[in-house]
């Protein structure tokens, strides 16, 4: 379980995070949504320790991550996998070297076992015939897959994903969203995803936090989000007319079938 307590962060005079408190539900896909500049990425970087908070605490299973020095953070960091917005693959390494890098650095496995594990992860993200290619030679969607494979190669407990759909076409976005969702369930990982893509919100969000101007504005599930009366949240998620239609369709569907929520809960993770 990841707990955020009263996180504050400023850059110069500009306050980016204003007293943010939230819990990331274990074993679920937790989404942080919000407009550009709302503080999502800064919040995520504070959670993984890439940015130091001004005040507040980040707790990983009750351990205060923010109070630890770099050496104390290492064991927790080795339980964290992260997929960056631009994938952050090491461009001097091939796809398989990228995925093997965390294993080479931290695992005590033999070379043969490390290669086997690397291949398992690449197979899991359904990346074929790309082992020997360099990041510059593969597409954006493939880079995301490699990034996911590298993030899960050490069997992390926590997976952080920053803007998984940026720069991807809608079809590839859906595939990546599904992959993240499936991996979360399969590996029983606590996943935190930063996004402003409403498809991701509706398809894969178990627990959603809406950020507005550095504050946590709303928190709930992807079922609740449709019925929320929060004006700022509604302005954000229904900005597109397409989602206005979805809102109406969903409401109609739910009125028609009172057991909708029960059905969703029963079949959501399959």
């Amino acid at each position: 379980m990841i707990e955020l307590k009263n996180i504050r962060k400023s850059f110069g005079d500009k306050e980016i995070l204003k007293d943010v408190s939230a819990n990331m539900e274990p074993g679920k896909t937790n989404l942080i949504i919000g407009a550009s500049g709302s503080g999502k990425t800064v919040l995520m970087k504070c959670m993984v320790g890439l940015i130091k908070v001004d005040s507040g605490t980040v707790l990983y299973n009750g351990q205060d991550f923010t109070a630890m020095d770099d050496v104390e953070k290492k064991p927790i960091r080795q339980e964290i996998g992260m997929l960056f917005q631009g994938s952050a693959l090491f461009d001097s390494m091939t796809v398989e070297q990228n995925v093997m890098f965390p294993l080479d650095m931290f695992s005590t496995m033999s070379y043969k076992e490390r290669r086997k594990r690397m291949q398992e992860c690449l197979d899991r993200v359904e990346l074929k015939d790309a082992n020997k290619k360099f990041p510059a030679e593969i597409s954006g969607g493939m880079k995301k897959r490699v990034g996911i494979a590298r993030a899960i190669v050490l069997n992390p407990k926590y997976l952080f994903v920053d803007e998984p759909n940026s720069g991807l076409d809608p079809q590839t976005s859906l595939i990546i969203d599904k992959l993240i969702k499936d991996i979360t369930v399969e590996y029983n990982i606590t996943t935190v995803v930063n996004t402003h893509d409403m498809n991701t919100v509706m398809e894969s969000g178990d627990h959603i936090i809406y950020m507005h101007q550095g504050k946590k504005q709303w928190e709930g599930s992807n079922e609740d989000i449709i019925f929320s009366e929060d004006k700022l949240l509604n302005d954000f998620i229904f900005a597109s007319e397409f989602f206005q239609d979805i809102k109406e369709m969903r409401k109609m569907e739910i009125f028609r079938d009172k057991n909708w929520r029960a059905k969703q809960a029963g079949g959501g993770n399959k």
């Binding site: 064991p75 992260m82 960056f84 917005q85 631009g86 952050a88 090491f90 931290f106």
Partner: peptide
């Protein structure tokens, strides 16, 4: 963000 990726790995 390759440096950040390595930092996160510990």
């Amino acid at each position: 963000e390759q440096i950040d990726a390595q930092e996160i790995m510990g």
